[in-house]
Computed example of a mutant assay.
Amino acid sequence: MAALVYFRKITEDPNAIVYSFGEDPSAMTRHLTMDKNARKSQPDDGNIDYLFLKASRKINSMYEQASEWPERGMSVS
């Protein structure tokens, strides 16, 4: 089974970034908040599912590669 997640940065402050994410780039209805210092995220709806984990891991992976938080992206597996 293939898994696909899109994400886009919504807001950022010195400590955290909020991303929207979802399976369709035109309907990213969920949000996650990334703690920039700890590099840990939490889903705003409290639902720690595969889609949330996939988005969070890809965001962290892109940060490791570029040393900056991504504006948007996607992950497919």
Rank of each mutant, 00 (worst) to 15 (best):
M1D: 15
A3L: 14
V5E: 04
V5A: 04
V5Q: 02
Y6K: 04
R8Y: 08
R8K: 14
I10G: 07
I10H: 01
T11K: 03
E12F: 07
E12Q: 11
P14E: 06
N15T: 13
I17M: 02
I17E: 06
S20Q: 10
S20D: 09
S20F: 01
F21H: 04
E23Q: 03
D24Q: 13
P25Y: 08
S26P: 06
S26E: 08
M28A: 08
M28Q: 08
T33D: 06
D35C: 01
D35L: 04
K36G: 02
R39P: 05
K40Y: 03
Q42K: 13
D44I: 01
D44G: 04
G46H: 04
D49S: 12
Y50I: 13
Y50R: 07
Y50P: 00
L51P: 03
F52E: 01
L53N: 05
A55L: 06
A55I: 03
A55G: 05
S56E: 06
R57C: 02
I59Q: 01
S61P: 07
S61K: 14
S61L: 12
S61N: 10
S61D: 14
S61T: 15
M62V: 15
Y63W: 13
Y63N: 10
Q65M: 14
A66V: 14
S67P: 03
S67L: 07
P70C: 11
S75P: 00
V76A: 05
